[in-house]
Amino acid sequence: MSGRHTGAVVIDPSPPVAAHEPRFRRALGGAAVPLLAAAGLAAFWLFPNDLGLMTRIAATALYVLSLDLVLGFGGIATLGHAAMFGTGAYAAGIAAVHLVSDPLVLLAVGGLAGGLVALVTGALILHARGLTLLMLTIAVVQIVQEVVNKARDLTGGSDGLSGIEPSPLFGLFRFDMFGRTSYLFALAVLLVGFLVARRIVRSPFGLACRGVKEDPLRVAALGGSPRRYLVTLYAVAGVFAGVAGALTAVTSGIVGLDSVSFSWSAEALVMLVLGGAGRLVGAVIGTVAFMTIHHVMAAIDPFHWMLFIGLFLMGTVLFLPGGIASLADRLIKGNRA
């Protein structure tokens, strides 16, 4: 099919096929966590007035990382990932208002809720593929949003849920009004999440998922069960997204209906593709780039922002299918040639 259309754009949510995995990339992978930590701490000293934004960026990066697990390593295209993020956020928020206040427990609650929603909906919808699956993921996020909207007594409905006041972290560090604790907490959770995600990607399970992404029937011929891999991956990613949602709730103190929306799902996809799907660093880079530009441009006019991101998306698809993270590869290849 594509052969007849010259210049067809094909986005493969995986790193480009390299004959040998470049040594520098493996080295880069090893250095990713120290680099992220250093950059995060440097930002802490450099931009003390933007800690609120940076906290949101760190939590969102974890959310996009979770989408990367699903799309980049499992090949599941979804426009409903916010279902898990939002469920995690609301679960943690409701728990904080009524039950517990320990921030770590709240993260666990969010992760559990996100994982459960993903497990149940994943088992229901992952038999589908392509457009049908896209539609089902949209339907799931819309239903979850509708349920949250209607459960006004618990969630605050369209007014949002507020009054989330976590107790001091480890009983020691209060969430101060400058957001210093919040930011460092979010950064630490992101780094731990990154390490765990990398561990999963390099595990036997991660290998099997990559196989399913490329050719599910071939995996079945090796004796594996593609659907079970996908549902498990979806559930695991749901835990990540749920933790990310809970992290947002804990650090910002409020949860809104937009955290379980179609557009928040689509934005995650945009951030991931911007950074480069199929590699974990890409998720973080994409989030930082997207949200920083958003912050700057939306302050002027939200529609300028839409124009910019729209053009940027089209440009990425047409000219840079590997995302920002692939720029380094290109530069290095260019120098070698």
């Binding site: 099919m1 594509s2 259309h5 210049g7 067809a8 754009v9 094909v10 986005i11 949510p13 799309l71 295209a77 392509g130 457009l131 896209l134 593709v273 698809v317 047409l318 299918p321």
Partner: peptide
């Protein structure tokens, strides 16, 4: 450039 089912994401 994007006709064809090979590439829903693009």
């Amino acid at each position: 450039r994007i006709y064809g089912s090979a590439n829903e994401l693009a």
